[in-house]
Simulated scan of single mutants.
Amino acid sequence: MEWRKSYLDVILVPLGFSITIAYHVWLWHKVRTQPLTTTLGTNSRGRSYWVAAMMKDNDKKNILAVQTIRNMIMGSTLMATTSILLCTGLAAVISSTYSVKKPLNDAVYGGHGEFMLALKYVSLLTIFLFSFFCHSLSIRFVNQVNILINTPPDPSGIVTPEYVSELLEKGFLLNTVGNRLFYAALPLLLWIFGPVLVFLCSLTMVPVLYNLDFLLGSRKGKHAVNGSDRDFESV
């Protein structure tokens, strides 16, 4: 029966994604409790200082602020465009009558049936759609920052540097989530060639992301994180 051929898919694919999810849950905990030991927390703190500096001396730095935010928007736009183009290609493959699995039947392990192949492509399509959604929302928030960061001092005290910084952090958070979803599609893409590659790719991505997400060369942050840093809520 078909399910007997898919036992590797049932075991290795969920196990690989469980490792990735567990890592990101741990990363989220570290960002909330010890932000200065992570690149996400450190960069977030730096962005809040940057927004305050731009709004304090807006007459001299308004062009710099607009150009910097424009570069952020261009990066999110590129990722959103890539995600939706990949969604379009996957939708075309799913709706095609050509059976793409025939040349691979003798080359991979795991299930080769119509249901398993459809599951692989639909999973990829879903991941890329959510990535596009996150990047689109990120562009929306950063566009708002692009307008508000050049506003004159607000007598009512509503449009403050703290408010603009919060909007910017929401945009960057959505951009980060969109990028991580895009990265998660790599193991799913390798699933076409078998579940073993999914598990190996997930194992490989965790140490790579760890080296990118944590400040390994600086241990001062661990001792600097106490009272005030525990109130870090922007990421």
Rank of each mutant, 00 (worst) to 15 (best):
E2N: 03
E2A: 09
W3T: 08
D9Q: 00
V10W: 10
I11D: 03
I11G: 10
L12K: 03
P14F: 00
L15D: 12
F17R: 06
F17S: 01
A22K: 06
A22N: 02
Y23C: 05
V25I: 13
L27D: 00
W28E: 03
K30F: 04
V31E: 01
R32Q: 10
R32I: 02
R32V: 00
Q34L: 00
Q34V: 08
G41V: 11
N43M: 10
N43C: 05
K56R: 12
K56S: 03
D57P: 04
D57A: 03
D59W: 03
K60E: 06
K61M: 07
L64K: 01
A65Q: 03
Q67D: 07
T68K: 02
I69A: 11
R70T: 00
N71H: 09
M74K: 09
S76T: 14
S76K: 15
T77C: 15
T81D: 14
T81F: 14
T82N: 14
T82L: 12
L85Q: 06
L86R: 01
L86F: 12
L86H: 12
L86G: 08
C87L: 13
A91N: 10
V93W: 08
S95R: 08
S95A: 15
S95C: 13
Y98L: 13
S99Q: 15
S99N: 14
L104G: 07
L104R: 01
L104C: 06
N105I: 14
N105W: 13
V108K: 15
G110W: 12
G110Q: 07
G111I: 00
G111F: 00
H112F: 02
H112K: 12
E114F: 01
F115S: 10
A118E: 06
Y121S: 05
Y121K: 05
T126H: 14
I127A: 10
F128R: 04
F128P: 02
L129F: 12
S131Q: 03
H135F: 08
S138P: 01
R140E: 07
R140Y: 07
N143Q: 10
N150R: 06
N150M: 03
P152L: 00
P153G: 10
G157W: 01
P161S: 05
P161H: 05
V164P: 10
L167E: 11
L167R: 08
L168E: 06
L168I: 05
L168R: 04
K170W: 13
K170N: 11
L173D: 13
N175E: 12
N179C: 05
R180V: 15
R180P: 00
L181A: 08
F182C: 04
Y183S: 12
A185P: 02
P187S: 05
P187D: 12
L189N: 13
L190N: 02
W191S: 08
F193E: 05
L200Q: 01
L200A: 07
S202R: 04
T204S: 10
P207W: 05
V208F: 11
Y210W: 06
F214E: 06
G217K: 05
G221K: 07
K222N: 13
K222P: 03
N226M: 04
N226T: 11
G227C: 06
D229M: 13
D231R: 09
D231G: 09
S234D: 04
V235E: 04
V235D: 02
